[in-house]
Design a protein around this nucleic acid. Sequence first.
DNA 1: TTGAAAGCGCTAACAG
DNA 2: CTGTTAGCGCTTTCAA
Lengths: 346, 346
Amino acid sequence: MIQLKDVAELAGVSTGSVSKVLNGYAVSPRMKKSVELAIAELNYKPNMVARSLRTKTSNSIGVMVPYTNDPYFMEFFRGVSIGLSEKGKVPFLFSTEPHDEFSAQKMQQIFMRGVDGLIVSTYGWKDSVLEELYLIAEKIPVVSYKRSFPGTAIHSVGVDDCSGMFKAVEHLTSIGHRRIGYIASGLNLDTGQQRLKGYQQALEQAGIAYEDNLVVESAAFQIEDGYNAVQQLLKRFPLPSAIVGANNSVAIGALKFLESRNVKIPEDIAVMGYDDEPLSTLVTPKLSSVSVPVYEMTAKAVQIIEDAILGVHKETINILFPTTLKIRNSTDFSATAAFEFERFSR
Amino acid sequence: MIQLKDVAELAGVSTGSVSKVLNGYAVSPRMKKSVELAIAELNYKPNMVARSLRTKTSNSIGVMVPYTNDPYFMEFFRGVSIGLSEKGKVPFLFSTEPHDEFSAQKMQQIFMRGVDGLIVSTYGWKDSVLEELYLIAEKIPVVSYKRSFPGTAIHSVGVDDCSGMFKAVEHLTSIGHRRIGYIASGLNLDTGQQRLKGYQQALEQAGIAYEDNLVVESAAFQIEDGYNAVQQLLKRFPLPSAIVGANNSVAIGALKFLESRNVKIPEDIAVMGYDDEPLSTLVTPKLSSVSVPVYEMTAKAVQIIEDAILGVHKETINILFPTTLKIRNSTDFSATAAFEFERFSR
DNA sequence: TTGAAAGCGCTAACAG
DNA sequence: CTGTTAGCGCTTTCAA
């Protein structure tokens, strides 16, 4: 392994001087030149581990994502990754399984490795793991994705789920639906509660009485949970003319069950998702949904981390992003039929 | 930050001794006890950066995955992540964009951070980046996923693409198809060539003459590439009665185009994918495909890395895994209609 | 079995 | 502007 000392020798200068040109401090042009020559000659690469030990920063960020098959993981990670890369930072990635016994341990691992900050999606985390997170947040900046932790040092980026779901349901009432089933997921989470609230407020605004038995709770946020939950809704009488899922996956699960029973969508029953993803345009019919600005959110998360590391933030930051309605064929037969490729573009 | 020295002081022993109990060397029970007590009392966490600098190993592995929207990325990463986690190793993740100018730079970054090995999917990498990879492979173990580099130090895990595609096409000929269109992707890669070869061999075995104009090349491996490519195939006369995609995404793209033109699948044209993924069961009709044992492959990749780090391997390892046929409704109308959830299970 | 001490490769005062 | 030097927190000889 060729190291700084070797560069110094070849260039005929001190190691301190080499370090200076490496880190962009003021040096004479002559010195700079000869050092750079030696670096190129030897193909020298600084040892980041030694640098980290000395400077106590690593230019790396811990990222924790849930292990679900949910595609939002992919977009979240992708966004964070692009953002960090632009800032010259490296992601240390950890996946967490919901109810993973080792999440706390993994988080410690990552912390011990000297990351400068943490960006986390805490979906499925147990309280004990969250406790650990609070502790870490006292020491390095932490940004939580789509979930806020009021009263802690944890920053967050999220969306206004109440207004987002309001839009979804308002869309349905605006095209005439009066009996709207709701597949509720994550009612133990603030985000799940806000979505339900949005549903209720939209009904209220349309002058529709809320009916408890049009809301069924799903086991979780996955496709199969929606597939199972929708079956309850089909036992109601009169049948709902529209069904909204608390997220996109449960809506797709519902869609798939209805398809298997030859229910016509949207003619017999309209289906609406929430938290749009590329998959929406690949199912038949294409799923209407409410879209969340993943890229803006992840970019912001990275920005917050960076600022926090630099000590810019004195207060905990909690930002909510707006959502946008995507109307497709699962609620509107006449919606654009052109093949639409939804990509994560920047 | 509480450190080893503090533990030593509290326990009334030397730092060397604390290090010994930390690393499981022989110490007296008394010493062990008191040190452990002090560690617990102070809630001491070793600084992995310092440890790495000293030991020259980091227990971390660099993982490079392509930035595509292709879901196979997710499964690959998930498998690797689970595998590493089981070995107590941490993934340092880097995403690469096809034709990314910075891939080489990113790889250097990761290398400089002292990873003990590298697991890479080189999809879309330019030659200059590969050159860099060869160099790195001289210094630390590298395992490539789904692509081999004969004559280099790079290990690989892959599948037998020729026999895999053979199975796919054989399935079609066995149910009576004689005119089978093929969407070729990645003909510049060995894996793309092997798949095409499998297609040709299956035709030959069925006594069907190969026709150049039933093979169209797609721009890349994405859904939209299949969507575009299939349009060429529809200009052939007589029309093919079946179409095979070189991977799952292009097959889905084809499926979506045919759907938009109200072509009945599989009655008018059967569609077959390759390299199955969960998405196959979410499109309508469900896509027949050839499945690759992602988890076994990633687990093997991790195993190889681990062994190589320990110096077990003297030779470069190249392993091919077998594929399995998944028959669904896009080729067989009567295939199981039950809702099938494909999950990445272990 | 334990302690003392010498670094791992780098940066950052501090002097010159 | 440049060189010297003292560590960053840990492991690992080497002696005791």
